[in-house]
Write a protein that binds this DNA or RNA. Structure first.
Lengths: 220, 220
DNA sequence: CAATACATTAAACGATCGTTCAAGATCGAC
DNA sequence: GTCGATCTTGAACGATCGTTTAATGTATTG
């Protein structure tokens, strides 16, 4: 039975930490809990990683590595800026949940990683525009950033999304057509035809301009 | 000087707790920290709220109350399903940040609250469709849910959004036209014209159908 | 086989945690 | 002005936290 888990003890501890940190946050997880999940003593956790903070950094770096692998591998065949799709494709569910938590908890490396994902999205979108798949825009960076944030935001709020539409985007639902429809269909619709009518766009543009000129008056 | 703060001591403790919980999470915040922020002794916190968990519930309910007020007041004049706009309009920044944290930490009341926001969004969108402001859809619930999740997701990831495009959506930037442009312009663009071209939509639809029929074959 | 390095554990340490408690301080009611 | 109720504090309690330490087990190596 042991042959079914060929990971190092240190790797098992690290993976247990990733799971626990993802579920309860770093502050909400004790070393004793991680040790219990990994089936070792608390002292061994410290022996292998030095301290809780160092263990957290090790988790950070490991998940960051997975993300970079996933991006390199499944990017071209997938949805581009939809990071969550890449995770599902590779089956790295704990890493996805860890990222979701860490995006809010904050960590030494996650900000850097998000910037990286957005830069990739900019490149992906630019290619899409060149090949006529994606509409051009004045706000290249802003649009890529917002699309990425929305995608990551859905990942972070996966529990709510699951409750709302019955789809866990941190799980592999590629075999479940119902789930695919519930999540992908409305998103695809928004991304293709938008939600506002021409009338609304015109109204908002006018309101925006008038607000702006009013502020210019104020500031004089 | 004391006249500048007419809140009850209990209210000051509660507000301090909301701020600290929002910044560091519930597990990452000690009662002693809250007491220090409120300028009282740790014992007094317990005396007024019974326990840390009860204090958390009190924060939950207070913020939920603020959100319901905000929804009722600024909904009609604002962006509809953009919850964050409502917070800025009323100036309840700590409540917004508390909600952002609690959406991920989980709490006894937040799920209920999210469902409520989505139901409101469905109603708002339906009205918009009737008056010709919003495009109709097959997926009423799904679209409203996803739009709400995106909006809340941006709130949750406000720190990353600020770093990426220089706009803190938990702050009142109504006086800052640059910030308004950076965030609102791309979002409005996506919501009006979409991001995918007709070619892409057609391709995705075909891919979706073929995937589906392949799965139907499989399941036979 | 002896020696050495590494893996691992149980026990304990000091710090901090949420909470309790006893004792003042403050206040309104009679 | 006295009394009871409420507000507030400082000290302390037991539990749990991250971490250390000493000891034992288990390989590896010459």
């Amino acid at each position: 039975m042991r042959s079914s888990d060929d990971r190092t003890t240190a790797a098992r501890i690290r993976d247990a930490a990733i799971t626990e940190f993802a579920a309860r946050g770093v502050a909400g997880t004790s070393i004793r809990t991680i040790a219990a999940t990994a089936g070792v003593s608390p002292g061994l956790v410290i022996h292998h990683f030095g301290s809780k903070e160092d263990l957290r950094v090790a988790c950070d770096e490991h998940v960051a590595g997975i993300i970079r692998d996933v991006k390199g591998g499944a990017m071209a065949s997938g949805g581009g800026f939809d990071v969550t799709a890449a995770f599902r494709a590779v089956g790295e569910i704990p890493a996805a949940k860890y990222l979701a938590r860490t995006l809010v908890d904050g960590s030494p490396h996650v900000a850097e990683l998000v910037d990286e994902i957005v830069r990739d999205a900019v490149g992906y979108v630019a290619t899409g525009v060149e090949t006529g798949m994606i509409k051009p825009t004045e706000h290249e960076w802003g649009r890529a950033a917002i699309l990425t944030i929305w995608s990551l935001g859905a990942l972070v709020l996966h529990e709510h999304l699951e409750r709302l539409i019955g789809v866990d985007i941190t799980a592999d639902f590629s075999q479940d057509p119902t789930a695919t429809t519930a999540y992908m269909a409305p998103a695809l619709e928004i991304f293709s035809q938008g939600v506002f009518t021409e009338t609304t766009v015109q109204l908002m543009r006018e309101a925006f301009v008038s607000q702006r000129s009013a502020q210019e008056k104020e500031s004089v």
